[in-house]
Design a protein around this nucleic acid. Structure first.
Lengths: 335, 335
DNA sequence: TTGTACGCGTTATCAC
DNA sequence: GTGATAACGCGTACAA
């Protein structure tokens, strides 16, 4: 039995009766090859079913036209839309996107960064600013441009395209308080290694004390990301004595879980308790009651991120953090 | 200004005072290097911040420990859970997953396949069996194992891990008819290049004629994948004279759109019209009324797929198609 | 246990 | 327009 061996530039060159240099030129700068030769090469390539070897190409040219993105989760919708837009924009510029996910684990994120870098990505998209300085240094040393999305922090080491999580949640919280709520509950993703979650919690605390309420009275539950975990947290928080009149959720997915559990427990939202979300993913306008939430321009963010990273990859200097506007989306889950 | 150059095996070797071969051995088979040498090399690697060059490694070893997956969409939740499980399982085996999306376009899928192959993936996960024989031949020629998921088709060219879309939808349709429905509407993804969608539509037609109804009476609308498109289709279908008493949707996302539009139009589900879905993604149990749908074991499918592909990549022969069980999930959107 | 030397498939620099 | 040929960074016989 003879195992098949992929054909190479050399094979094509032989079959076409030209040199490897010419085939390479045909591939990269066809306009510098005569029509006659072009046809011969094309023919040979088709017959052999030749495809360039990526590894070799990278080694010889030092450029991969590949961008890597590491997102906390692909399983939930939060990043999907933004990443899709990011990829689409990149595609128009001739770049390929490699997506990896870290399961919200800094350790895994670091691994993934190293993997993608050793794979020769030309640039990297990361979510949020929370990561060890060591790995940021590593990127700097390797000369790999990295861009942060979904966050906005003046003075951060890496350039970014994102929004001010603190201000955005602050606006929502202020609106909540303006409705007269005094007993506030909050369900958040883990804040320890997640600057977005942390900023949102801090914002609520801040607005609370700003309004003369006691920030430490905030009933906060931190939990994994998911509908089920949101449901569990809701039940815990609502069954305390003197339960909150409103539960602010750190994102729409947790809020959807809360809504679901409320329904299961026979608690009516917003009559018995109000619920809010953050992100305005599709889910938010499908659940009932529809979620009052903060609209994040995911598509725009993805597109802008692609452009910025493209600039960086082409040697342009980093710009100051780019801030995108978010918008309160008032619907029916909060009264 | 001196631009940074990544350190190489050679640099490490020099700094450690050993040969490149020894450093390479340290990296790949540390047990064959003496403790003393190991320490020296380790030291040098840390000082220089060395990371192996992936391209070079691939060229020399012919193995990338990388698996590619091409899914129709990353923006919607259908594939997310399965792919996450796929990745997790792969990770435990030391493989990295590269995900690309085709936007349900066979042309783009083909491009992506070629891109991933030229990047040296060891194996490929594809969704469904619908694709040109040319590209399948290409994979065979290149000796890249490919596994199909989300579908089950005896006699198909590629091995698969999936479920029988025809049988599953047939079961649901039979149940629908048993409830007494006579006027059936259906909203489906485009069937032309999507074997899963096609099988589901055919199943409904089949059950219709099996029950003595006229299969050609099925009010069918095919549309793009999405909540909004589902909503639009629902409105079109429901505003005809003699509208259906039940609308079978090809997937949960379309069904969610239908539900949303029903709500907007003041049509009550299931009192005025029943709606069913397919997939049982999170969405299905969050919308109200909760969706009657077909539960697909996404996680299990992803995990099994990872294992099968791993076998293939390691040179084991393909197994016959693996069929996973699906399950009718009876909830509130159908009476 | 360690080192030498070659090959992997491509691009880029020169000549021609 | 085209052809030699030297890199690129690593793995691996083979030799020592």
């Amino acid at each position: 039995m003879s195992s098949y061996l992929a054909s190479t530039l050399n094979d094509v060159a032989q079959k076409a009766g030209v040199s490897t240099a010419t085939v390479s030129r045909y591939l990269n700068t066809p306009e510098r090859v005569s029509k006659r030769t072009r046809d011969k090469v094309e023919q040979a390539i088709n017959v052999l079913g030749y495809t360039p070897n990526f590894g070799a190409r990278v080694m010889a040219s030092k450029r991969t036209y590949t961008i890597g993105a590491i997102i906390p989760t692909i399983e939930n919708a939060i990043f999907a839309r933004g990443i899709q837009a990011f990829q689409d924009e990149l595609h128009t510029k001739g770049y390929t996107l490699l997506v990896a996910s870290s399961s919200y684990d800094p350790q895994i994120e670091e691994e993934q960064i190293r993997t993608l870098v050793s794979r020769g990505v030309d640039g990297l998209l990361l979510i949020g600013h929370d990561r060890s300085p060591k790995i940021v240094d590593f990127l700097e040393k390797k000369n790999i441009p990295a861009l942060v999305a979904w966050a906005h922090e003046i003075g951060a080491k890496l350039p970014s395209v994102g929004f001010d999580n603190f201000a955005a949640m602050g606006e929502l919280a202020r609106y909540v308080l303006s409705l007269g709520h005094k007993r506030i509950g909050m369900i958040s993703a883990w804040t320890k290694t997640n600057d977005r979650a942390r900023a949102r919690v801090m914002a609520v605390r801040h607005i609370l004390s700003e309004s003369g309420l006691n920030a430490s009275d905030l009933k906060l539950i931190e939990t994994d990301y998911g509908i089920e975990t949101g449901a569990v947290a809701f039940e815990q928080i609502i069954q305390r004595p003197m339960p909150p009149t409103v539960i602010i959720c750190g994102n729409d997915v947790l809020a959807a879980g809360a809504l679901k559990q409320a329904n299961t427990l026979g608690i009516e939202v917003p009559r018995d308790v109000s619920v809010t979300g953050f992100d305005d993913i599709d889910l938010a306008s499908i659940v009932s009651p529809r979620l009052t939430t903060v609209h994040v321009p995911h598509r725009d963010m993805g597109k802008r991120a692609a452009r910025e990273l493209h600039h960086l990859v082409n040697g342009n200097p980093p710009k100051p953090p780019i801030e995108l506007k978010v918008e309160l989306k008032i619907r029916n889950s909060l009264i």
